[in-house]
């Protein structure tokens, strides 16, 4: 991959960043739903973020039944489908900050505890282990001035770059969306349709490889339509 020449000093170039993520154990584990709720109330926010998003950069099967680790455990560890469904629909992007997101998760779990006559327990080898991530971000040295320039590079971006610009961006940007659409906003109104399509991508059920393909397809389709 070569660097794209920056030929327009006035445009803000898109800087491609890359990242690698590694999981760490927190040493905290829940044997039952009561313990889970208690730990959830005090666990560092980065652990919650890891279980909602960081899993995308971890080995995992690409056809998940539930879209976050908490919901998966509710189903597979506690056999509680109701809780799994409710936890699946807590969307991080609906909340202004991560503390509010934590509160909502705790609310959902406490509500379920109120409904249950007995505290649901997991088997001894199905406890929930709270993890956190360490993320290393670095500059890939790729810069793009015009949106059309990025198209041939998209299929070759690493999954780390996709994670950084499409997932991690949801915690960094004001619009709680991806870096590509944030950049396109400054490139002119003609890119609004592409921005809308990018913002409407649901990243929850896709692997990073799939997201890369979806983003590539959206960019390619947009510029093909433009050309026509």
């Amino acid at each position: 991959m070569t660097e794209s020449a920056v030929d327009n000093a006035e445009a803000t170039p898109f800087t491609v960043r890359d990242c690698a993520l590694i999981s760490l154990a927190t040493g905290l584990k829940a044997h039952n739903l009561r313990e889970f709720s208690d730990i959830l109330k005090r666990i560092p926010l980065e652990s919650i973020e890891h279980h909602l998003w960081g899993r995308l950069l971890q080995p995992r099967f690409d056809e998940p039944e539930y879209n976050n680790d908490f919901a998966s455990w509710a189903f597979h560890g506690l056999n509680d489908k109701i809780l799994a469904e409710r936890l699946s629909m807590v969307l991080p992007t609906d909340f202004d900050d991560q503390e509010a997101l934590r509160q909502e998760l705790v609310e959902v779990v406490e509500e379920r505890l109120d409904e249950c006559e007995m505290v649901p327990w997991a088997k001894k080898d199905n406890q929930f282990h709270f993890l956190r991530s360490q993320i290393v971000i670095f500059d890939s040295r790729l810069r793009f001035v015009q949106p059309v320039d990025i198209v041939p590079y998209l299929p070759h971006l690493s999954t780390g770059s996709i994670y950084y610009h499409f997932i991690d961006a949801r915690n960094r940007t004001d619009e709680r969306c991806d870096d590509f659409s944030a950049w396109l906003a400054g490139c002119g109104p003609e890119y609004q349709p592409l921005r809308e399509r990018l913002c409407s991508v649901d990243p929850y059920f896709s692997s990073l490889q799939n997201i890369r393909q979806i983003v590539t397809d959206l960019f390619q389709a947009f510029f093909e339509e433009e050309a026509q």
């Binding site: 960043r17 690698a20 760490l24 993320i135 290393v136 670095f138 500059d139």
Partner: peptide
Amino acid sequence: AMMLGLQSGTEGRMELGL
């Protein structure tokens, strides 16, 4: 990633040369 984290002594988010 782990070695970089240990080398820098950082346990959270780490930005290299940005």
